[in-house]
Design a protein around this nucleic acid. Structure first.
Lengths: 193, 193
DNA sequence: GTGCTATTATACCAATCGGTATAGAGACTG
DNA sequence: CAGTCTCTATACCGATTGGTATAATAGCAC
């Protein structure tokens, strides 16, 4: 029980700091204070470990995003709520999200990419739906819902990246409300152009 | 002479598709039709190969960006010129740029990150200077030049990423003028908020 | 021809890669 | 007590990792 968590925690730290491919299984178990068979007992393979890692954290993220998007506010308000969750969830679990991003960029034929891609697509689809549901506010989007979604995610991602660069590696990251509202506001101005 | 280029071409393709750490030296030389000592003769190490790869392509990118930014137009015009170069250069050499991005996300302790980070910072500094030089247009930026620069790069990067996802893996990517103008326009609206 | 330099292949290195066969230890059930 | 199940350590696997020592090849100057 405890060993399982220890392995996941070690793996997350190492993957986040060095990248999935640069970390060996041996290094993970050493860092967790266990041995290899323990890892393979719980996760079956290195890939299985990564899948579990992503899945567990992703489900929490998805749940929170859905809850935030399911409200009666207008689009800016909805985006603010979603962004708020996004930053909150990812400032506590920011390593997982940055790992997802890193793997998503790591190349189509990379094992990590293949693990992470479906989750990234699910996130993207959630955001697309938000814009589709705001059709009465945005008017005819000319099929640009997807572009809006990706742009919005881009803005969120880069603000996270910026925060990580500003803050240290281990420090807790917290994003003030004004900043989140600023992000949404800036994005909305862009859309209405 | 020709072998050198063959190695660089193979390495670029493999790094781009699988990621730096997931590609072995043996795989690179096999793909290039040479043997390992040839690679180590020209580049000294796997890291040296990556450094050469990035540096060669980066210098062309930097030269083009500087040339585009050195004009008498107003900020939106200047940003358009820069974005245009950015997309042009990176749609032909898009694999290099995406490789840089991937490595930049790959974690601080990753070898690839350490190689690429200084180049990314130089790009960032160039963009910051563009916004600083537009102080008379933007008024008091309250020290947000860096934020503007990063946001703008973010927008460019994500449009590239989106293009890569839409287009195939090997297809030529070309970005129409309207789209580039749209990107700049959307960004400018955001800034004036 | 002789020497020098640049380039390249054969064959090898210790170390590490992801993964596993075997068996022991502990807890729970009968 | 025996039987069973979960979990974990020792020790090992073939394959691959980044990198190299040695020597052969070629081109070129003299």
């Amino acid at each position: 029980m405890d060993n399982r968590k220890a392995i996941m925690e070690s793996a997350l730290n190492l993957f986040y700091q060095k990248g999935y491919d640069a970390v060996g299984v041996q290094e993970i178990v050493d860092c967790a204070g266990v041995t290899k068979p323990t890892l393979y007992h719980y996760f079956g393979s290195k890939r299985g470990l990564l899948e579990t890692l992503i899945q567990v954290h992703y489900e929490e993220l998805e749940k929170n995003i859905r809850r935030a998007a399911d409200c009666e506010e207008n689009l800016p308000g909805k985006l603010y709520r979603v962004a708020r969750v996004f930053f909150d969830n990812n400032s506590s679990n920011i390593r997982v999200y940055m790992l997802m991003l890193a793997l998503f960029y790591s190349g189509r034929k990379n094992e990590g990419f293949q693990v992470v891609a479906p989750f990234v697509q699910r996130i993207c689809r959630m955001f697309i739906r938000i814009f589709e549901n705001a059709a009465d506010e945005l008017g005819n989007m000319h099929g640009r819902q997807k572009q809006f979604a990706i742009s919005f995610i881009a803005v969120l991602d880069y603000h996270l990246m910026m925060l990580i660069n500003d803050y240290g590696d281990t420090e807790e990251i917290s994003v003030p409300d004004e900043q989140v509202r600023g992000v949404v506001q800036q994005f909305m101005y862009g859309i209405y152009s």
